[in-house]
Simulated scan of single mutants.
Amino acid sequence: MSNPIYLALDVPRLDAAEALARKVKSHVGGLKLGLEFFCAHGHHGVHEIAKIGLPIFLDLKLHDIPNTVAAAMQAIHVLEPAIVTIHASGGRAMMEDAKAAAGEHTKVVAVTMLTSLDESDLAATGVGGSAHDQVLRLADLAHSAGLDGIVCSGQEVGAVHRQWKDGFFVVPGLRPAGGVLGDQKRAVTPREARDAGASVLVIGRPISRAEDPVAAARAIEATL
């Protein structure tokens, strides 16, 4: 992949998302559409964004019983996404069925631990141990289920890459050096994540909310 940056189009209006994507398309490698976008605009919105000509990452974080997740995967075949997310915590059977139901050219990656969470959040949900250990456990499960890779923070991607050499690793929650963390608790810079083994760098607010999104995207691209 020549440019690993996927711009997170986490904006509610379709026209605004299209305008932003067209502005920065020369400085990103793909476009990430999340739950907010998909719930607001559905298949039509995805088709419209796909016309821009960049790979589409559907960040739907599917998590349900295996049959339901498989059916959801089949329902998005027509959209031909490059990447789709599911939750590793859905278990091995759910992940196996999701991968089996996915399109031939779609990478299915499992979310391990959201970058907005830390160890105190894990403990509050009854999960013991460190964030690092939890991510490695779920990465092993995703690997054994036949998935293409995982989603994890830049703090864990190096360790996961060492144990899963040919995995496809999506790292969100990235912030340029000196950037505002916001609701991200386990953030690193795009260059740090890339050097540690990230395949895709998901970047949203540092570009989408910049005074000059093109200049922001270009500056991040230049660090890689």
Results as ranks from 00 to 15, higher is better:
residue 143 H to C: 12
residue 65 I to F: 08
residue 120 S to T: 14
residue 184 Q to N: 11
residue 139 A to T: 15
residue 151 V to K: 00
residue 131 A to C: 14
residue 22 R to G: 15
residue 202 V to E: 07
residue 207 I to T: 08
residue 156 E to Q: 09
residue 175 R to Q: 11
residue 203 I to Y: 00
residue 136 L to K: 12
residue 169 F to I: 15
residue 99 K to E: 00
residue 200 V to L: 09
residue 224 L to A: 02
residue 14 L to T: 13
residue 45 G to Y: 03
residue 152 C to M: 14
residue 20 L to V: 07
residue 16 A to K: 11
residue 26 S to V: 03
residue 114 L to G: 08
residue 57 F to D: 07
residue 34 G to S: 02
residue 69 V to I: 04
residue 201 L to Y: 01
residue 140 D to V: 09
residue 182 G to I: 11
residue 54 L to E: 05
residue 59 D to T: 01
residue 2 S to Y: 00
residue 211 E to Y: 02
residue 80 E to I: 09
residue 3 N to G: 09
residue 103 G to W: 05
residue 29 G to Q: 04
residue 203 I to N: 01
residue 170 V to T: 05
residue 143 H to V: 07
residue 55 P to T: 08
residue 15 D to R: 12
residue 37 F to V: 05
residue 28 V to D: 04
residue 63 H to F: 12
residue 199 S to H: 00
residue 73 M to L: 07
residue 46 V to E: 01
residue 88 A to G: 04
residue 39 C to L: 15
residue 139 A to F: 14
residue 135 V to M: 02
residue 156 E to I: 13
residue 103 G to M: 05
residue 9 L to D: 10
residue 13 R to E: 15
residue 204 G to V: 11
residue 187 A to H: 10
residue 50 A to V: 11
residue 174 L to I: 12
residue 108 V to T: 10
residue 217 A to R: 13
residue 141 L to Y: 06
residue 5 I to W: 01
residue 64 D to A: 02
residue 166 D to N: 14
residue 195 D to M: 10
residue 54 L to M: 03
residue 161 H to C: 12
residue 99 K to S: 01
residue 76 I to M: 04
residue 173 G to Q: 11
residue 81 P to E: 04
residue 115 T to F: 03
residue 49 I to F: 06
residue 53 G to Y: 03
residue 24 V to C: 08
residue 144 S to G: 03
residue 14 L to N: 12
